[in-house]
Structure formats: structure tokens, C-alpha cells
Write a protein that binds this DNA or RNA. Sequence first.
DNA 1: ACAAAAGTGTTTTCTATACACCCATGG
DNA 2: CCATGGGTGTATAGAAAACACTTTTGT
Lengths: 224, 224
Amino acid sequence: MKNTIQLTVDAVVFGYESGNISVLLVKRKYEPYKNAWALPGGFVLENENLEQAVERELSEETGVKINYLEQLYTFGDVARDPRGRVVSIAYFGLVKPNAFKLHASTDAQKAEWFNIAQLPKLAFDHKKIVQIAIERLQGKITYEPIGFELLDKRFPFSDLEKLYTTLLGREIDRRNFKKKITSLKVLDELDEKVSKGRGRPGSLFSFNQKRYFQLKKAGIIFEI
Amino acid sequence: MKNTIQLTVDAVVFGYESGNISVLLVKRKYEPYKNAWALPGGFVLENENLEQAVERELSEETGVKINYLEQLYTFGDVARDPRGRVVSIAYFGLVKPNAFKLHASTDAQKAEWFNIAQLPKLAFDHKKIVQIAIERLQGKITYEPIGFELLDKRFPFSDLEKLYTTLLGREIDRRNFKKKITSLKVLDELDEKVSKGRGRPGSLFSFNQKRYFQLKKAGIIFEI
DNA sequence: ACAAAAGTGTTTTCTATACACCCATGG
DNA sequence: CCATGGGTGTATAGAAAACACTTTTGT
């Protein structure tokens, strides 16, 4: 049986910085969709696993090192790519704020972060892929503690709170939220405090990694 | 870029009958893993969508018509198939009890239902795939009303209850469970009653399709 | 009459939510 | 001293869980 189906991976990588959730996009250097914005990604090599392909493409096209990666969905409609039959396995990634420095190369002219509310027109069916990824992010953050993956190792509590209000698109009660998070015991409060220009300085927190992985492994219910 | 990666689909199809949750397996007719049990599935044709491929393979190999189908996960490890690089997109399916009559053909010697607690040794990485599918089924049934997909159109309430106790692997309180389900208003109680040999006969119920699709669309929270 | 399955409400506990004032710092 | 953001507790309402006896049928 001769198979002429091509296989690619695409990555929807989210980053968060000061109230903005961004997606990483690259400007295509070649046809099809030359000069259009698209998700970073490309053909899977025969001797690499899928995750390796994603990490390689991300590194080649954007220089970003991923912090959290999971498979999102596989898109295989017959007509999704003008080059012929191309099935794409989409991944969902999160990076910490210090990954915001980019350097494009290979197949990409440049890589940039775009606020998820102001995305440009995208190549292929990538708009749909991004949409599904956003839904997954919003869904997931309410029942798994993945929000931490988007923050620095040490962060003020207000950053976590702001991340959640941004992602969920609604205000949350600071006291109730802190109660919930505190009850999970995933946060260690550090001695250090940090000031945001004006106002009372806040304590820095960090993850309790052990506890965090325990919860994750247990598939813990973590409703916000 | 020449791509010699092959693409297959595999289906983990669950059926339920009188307290038994079963998975549909086929006995392989050809190498590799000739005579071993495996998930129904096969190569994706260039001009068919992924779901079409699943349905075609299921129909060819088992004669089963699927009632609910969703994508499960894509398995792409380099060494998962001795024939070379084969990436498989696994699907998750549910069928109603009247689908329990099977007729194998094409690549399969025969098709059979196996209780999920007594599976034979499986070809490829299909054991892992089945495991992931079982986790998905157990997870999903607690927050989406997919349990109905496994029952006949008209069923006694005790069947639904038993399905849940079986899937969750624990007893559930009949009164609380009925309260929960009733509050969703997805069930219509029919006038007809049915007896299970001995004991008091129970009313038959059916889904309120409209309400059911409303809930599904709204991604309703449906915790059991 | 007894064994087997169906049907039915109330109480208690826990969790989610609503809500407002004081504190520490920089300008 | 004032503007800005950080920190903290309690009361209420709603949902989940615990719990046991009666009814209907077949044998």
C-alpha cells in the first residue's frame, strides 16, 4: 500500500506577560502562504518522535524553549493543505516570560508574539487550531494547575491572580482565590518581597514542585 | 522533502451489556503480529478524512456501526511498529448493545468483544492505547452525559446506574444518583415497564434528545 | 412467604460565594 | 498625605453525601 500522506506538527505556544496572553507565530518564508503568519511547525522526520519534531521546529523557527507541552489534536481533513494531503498533529505549549526573546531562522522570516485578541490572518486551518487551543487552555486552567507554567519561578501572588482573570475573562474574588490555592499547598511563600513601582510590596511565591507533581499525577480536581 | 511515514487509524470501541464493559478487538490475518489480537484499524487512504477511515475500517473488519466517535490521541513513537515509521491516530468510540453482532472480514480473521478486565495480549502498542481510552472513558463519564450512548434507546433506570457503578468501579447511592440525573431533565419516563426476571419491574426511560444536545453543546458540567 | 429488584425524602456536612476594611510603600 | 496595590475573615446559601424502609413482582 503506497501512502502519499505527509505528516507535520504545529505548535500553539502561549506566553503570558503583564496581563497579556500571547501566541507565538512565524511569518512564512516559502510558498504556500508565503509571507502569511502561521503556527510554528513543519514536517516530521522519519527518525524523530512527535514531541522531538515540535521542539526542533520551535527551536529552528523561533528559538523558543518550551516549558510545558501536550498534544492538542490531529487535523486531517483532506483539503486542509494546498500541497496535497497533509495531516498535522497540533501541540499545545506554555512558556515562561523569559522566553519572550525570539530569533527566527530556517523556514521563518521572523517570529513574533501576538495577543490572542488581535491575531492576524493565519495560513492553512491555523485559525481553527488556535481557537481549539484557546478553548483547551481556558478549560484546562480551571481543573489543572497549569497556570504556574506561564509564570516565572518566583512570582507575586497578584500575577497568578491576574493571569486567571485574564484567561477566564472575568473578575475573581481575591480572598476566595487565595483560599483555594492555599488549600492545595502548591505554593511556598518566600521571605522576599517585591514592589511593583507603587503600592505595598507583595511576597514572592514559588511552586512546591513535589506537591505539584503529586497533584498532577493524581489528576487532581482543582476547580476555580 | 520525501516523507516515508505511514499513517493509520485505530479505534477503541466500547460496548456495554449487563454489567460488562467490553472492547472490540480483531484477530490479525497478516504479518506483523499475525494471529494476535489488535484494535480494529488500518491505513488512511489519501482521499478520505480521518473519521471516514475509522468508520471504513470498522465496517470492513467488524461490521460494527459506531454510535459516538471522538479523537483520542495520536501515537507516533519511532519504534511503535516493526514495519517502519507508522503514526496512528487513535479514536474512541461507543456503540449500543444491539451492535454486539459481529462479522469480520478483510484484514481480520474474526472480531470479538473482550471484557476490559480480561484482555488478551495485544499487538503493537495497543495495550497502551486501550489503557488511555479507558482512562478517558472513566474521566469523561463523570462530566459529560456520554453514558447514554452505551445504552439502548429505551432502558430501565437500573441499567444506567449499573453502567456508572461499573465504569467508576465504586458503588453509588441510587437516590442521589437519580436526583442528579433527574435534575438534568435529560430523561423521559415512559409508561412501559419491564421486568428483569424477578423483582419489581422498572419503568423504561429514554433520552430527551433536545435537552441532551443542548447540554452537550453548552459543555455542561455534569458531575457524578 | 420469601427473594429480588424498584422506588422514594430528609438531615447533615461541606464547599462556594459574597462581601469591606486596613496596611505598606512611593511619589 | 494621597494614590496604588497587597493582605486578610466571616457569614450565608447551595450542593453533595449519608442514610433505610416500603412496594411490586416471580418462584
